[in-house]
Write a protein that binds this DNA or RNA. Structure first.
Lengths: 337, 337
DNA sequence: CAAATCTGCGAAAAGGCTTTCTCACGGAAA
DNA sequence: TTTCCGTGAGAAAGCCTTTTCGCAGATTTG
C-alpha cells in the first residue's frame, strides 16, 4: 500500500463557482464584511456543494494561531489526565480546536522538546496538568508568551490555576457518613507529604473533631489492609465508618474487613475518594466515593485558556471546583435525589 | 491575568544577522542546497543565537503537511491507547511530530467531527486504535486520501494493520507454566464474542490438548471468583495452574483461591494477560502475566504511518507483534535471564 | 584562449487564506 | 443638476517559509 495525495478544493474554487472574488468568498464564509444576504448564501451554498474545508495552516499562518491547544502532563498512566482531557476536548471541539496530548515523564529534557514543538506549532495555549496538585511539572511555562492554564497540578503564584476542592470533598464524605447515622469515624489516608492528604484530613477533623483519628500511610490497597489490622487489633471500641483517602485504600479496607468477618456496610460504612471506576466498581460491595469532577475541571480549563487566547483578562489565582458524592453500596443509604 | 503576544524571530532576521538571503538561510538550516560549510555554520550560529524557531504553519503550508499525526480511539479509559500513544509519541518526537489524541466514544458524529478537524489541519496521517481488535471504529477512514494505520483495532482488508499476537502470548503463558512443572491447567477467560478470547483459547488448546478445559465468562474479577467456585466445587482433581484471559479475572481467581485457603503459587500457579500494572501489582501475590507490548505496537504504528506519508510503499495486511512474559510471583519461578 | 562546467548564492514565486483599502454605483440631499 | 454618502464587492498586500531557477564568477577542459 502506498499513497499519493490529490488536490483539495480551495477558496478560489468556491469563489469561482459562486461568481465572486476570493475576498468576498472569505467574508461570506466567515460571516464578516458587508454583502447582500443573497451573495452570502450563494457562496455558502457553493462551498458546501464543493465540500470546501479551509486550509487550517493558511488560515493559521495569517491569524497567528493554530486552533490547537497543548495538554502537558506527567501523569503517564492517565488516571487524572484522561478525564481532564475528555473535558477539554469536549469543550473545545465545536470551536474546531484540537488537543495535543504530551506526556512527559518527569523528564525536563523531554518536556522542553514537547513545549518547543508546541510553540513551533503556535498552539493557542497550554494546559498543564499532572498527577498531584502539589508538584510542579519539570518545565517552566511562565515566560512562554502564550496563555497557560494549570489544572490539577501546582502552579506559580500569579498563574491561572484550577484544582478540585479536596476539603469540600472531604466534608461531603463526612456529611454523608453522618447522615447515615455513623458516630465513630476514622480516616485512613495516604502519605502526609501530599498536600491533598493534609487538606482532606484537615477538613475531616474540622468536621468531626480535632482529635478524630487519622491513619497516614501509602496510597495502596496494602496499606488499607494494614490499617484495618492496626485498628481492629487495638483495644477499644471499633469504628462504624472509615473514610479513605483514595479508592485503592478503600478497596484494601473493604477486603480486609470482609476477611475479618466485618460486614460492609452493615457494621461499617466505607467511603473512598477519586471515583476510580475500575477500582470502585470491582470492590465488593462497590465503593461509595467522592468524584473530583475532573471532566468539568477540563472543560473549565478549556474555557479559560481560550479566553486568555482571545485576549480577555482572567483573574489569576487558584480556582477550586467542588467534588461530588457518588453513592454505590459500601456505605449503605440510597443516592440523594 | 491577560495576555498579548510579542513578535517572534523570523528567518528573515536570521538571514540579516548572518548577512545572507532568506533563501540561503533556509537552505542552510535545512541542510539542503549548496553553499560553503562556513556560510552554513554562520547561519546556524545566527539562528541559534537569535533563538530562531521556524514557523510550523508557514512551513506546513508550503510542504502540505503539518508534522502532526492524529490518534483516533474509542478507548475512553485509555487502558490500551495510552501505552500505544506513548510509543507513537516516543517514536515521532525527534522528527518533530506531535500527536493529536481524539477519543470518540463510539459516536459516529463525534468521530466525523474529529476526523474532519484532522483533515483540515492536514495531519500527516491517522492512527486508528480501539479497545478491542475485532471491532471497527464508527467511522470510515478508507477514502480519506491520507495515510491510515490501524493499531489494536479492526481494519478493512486492504489496510495496514498492527495487532499483538494473542496466540503467541497464549503459548508463552502455557510454556511458562509447563516449564514450572505444572500438569493440570485450566483456562479462565472472557466472553466468546471477543476474537482475542477465541484466539487465546485456541492457542492454549493447541498447546495443552484439544480437550483442555476452558471457562468462558466475563472480563471481571467477579467472574474469576465464580470460576474458582465452579472448579473447586466440582468433583475430581483440581488444577495446579490457571491461565486467565486477563489480569482482572486473574485477580479474582487469586483472591478466591486465597479465600479457600489454596496457596498461590505453591498449590496453584496463576497467570494473567495484559500486564495491567495497577491490577497486576496490587494482587497478592503480584501477578505473573503477559504483556502485549502496546508501546512497541505504537512505535511501529508511528514508523509505518510516517513511511506512508513519505510516499513509501508499505505492504498491506495484518502485522502481529509478539507478546512478552512478565514474571512476578503468582506462578512461582524466577524471571528468565 | 575560448568554451564548457561547476560553485555559491539570491530573486522571486508559491502555498491558501484574511483583511484592508479602494472603487463604482445608485439614491438622497442641496 | 450637482454634490454627498452609504453600500456591495474586488484588488492587492500580507502571513513566513521553501524551492526552483538563474546568474555571476571561478575553475576546468579542449
Amino acid at each position: 500500500m502506498s499513497f499519493q495525495p490529490t488536490k483539495r478544493v480551495r477558496i478560489y474554487d468556491v469563489a469561482q463557482a459562486a461568481g465572486v472574488s476570493v475576498a468576498t468568498a472569505s467574508k461570506a464564509l466567515n460571516d464578516t464584511g458587508r454583502m447582500t444576504e443573497e451573495t452570502r448564501a450563494r457562496v455558502k451554498e457553493a462551498a458546501s456543494s464543493l465540500g470546501f474545508r479551509p486550509n487550517a495552516m493558511a488560515r493559521g499562518l495569517i491569524q497567528r494561531r493554530s486552533f490547537t491547544v497543548g495538554l502537558l502532563t506527567n501523569d503517564t498512566y492517565g488516571r487524572f489526565t484522561l478525564p481532564l482531557m475528555a473535558g477539554v476536548s469536549e469543550e473545545l471541539v465545536d470551536q474546531g480546536i484540537s488537543v495535543f496530548l504530551c506526556t512527559i515523564e518527569d523528564d525536563p529534557a523531554l518536556a522542553k522538546i514537547h513545549v518547543d514543538a508546541m510553540l513551533d506549532k503556535q498552539v493557542d495555549g497550554i494546559i498543564a496538568s499532572g498527577k498531584r496538585i502539589d508538584r510542579q511539572l519539570p518545565v517552566d511555562l511562565a515566560n512562554l508568551n502564550i496563555p497557560v492554564v494549570y489544572a490539577f497540578t501546582k502552579a506559580p503564584a500569579d498563574a491561572v490555576s484550577l484544582v478540585s476542592d479536596d476539603a469540600e470533598g472531604s466534608r461531603e464524605a463526612v456529611e454523608w457518613l453522618k447522615s447515615l447515622g455513623r458516630q465513630r469515624m476514622v480516616h485512613v489516608t495516604g502519605p502526609r507529604s501530599f498536600a491533598s492528604v493534609e487538606e482532606r484530613a484537615g477538613a475531616y477533623r474540622a468536621s468531626v473533631g480535632e482529635n478524630a483519628p487519622v491513619f497516614f500511610g501509602a496510597w495502596s490497597e496494602q496499606w488499607g489492609h494494614e490499617a484495618v489490622a492496626q485498628i481492629w487489633d487495638a483495644t477499644g471500641e471499633k469504628p462504624d465508618a472509615i473514610f479513605c483517602g483514595n479508592d485503592q485504600i478503600a478497596r484494601g479496607v473493604v477486603d480486609a474487613l470482609r476477611e475479618r468477618g466485618v460486614s460492609v456496610p452493615t457494621d461499617v460504612s466505607v467511603i473512598g475518594f477519586d471515583n476510580w471506576e475500575i477500582v470502585a466498581a470491582a470492590t465488593r460491595p462497590p465503593l461509595t466515593t467522592i468524584d473530583m469532577n475532573l471532566k468539568e475541571l477540563g472543560r473549565e480549563a478549556g474555557r479559560l485558556v481560550l479566553a486568555l487566547a482571545a485576549g480577555e483578562t482572567v483573574e489569576p489565582g487558584i480556582r477550586k471546583l467542588p467534588c461530588q458524592l457518588v453513592v454505590r453500596q459500601s456505605c449503605g443509604g440510597a443516592p440523594r435525589s
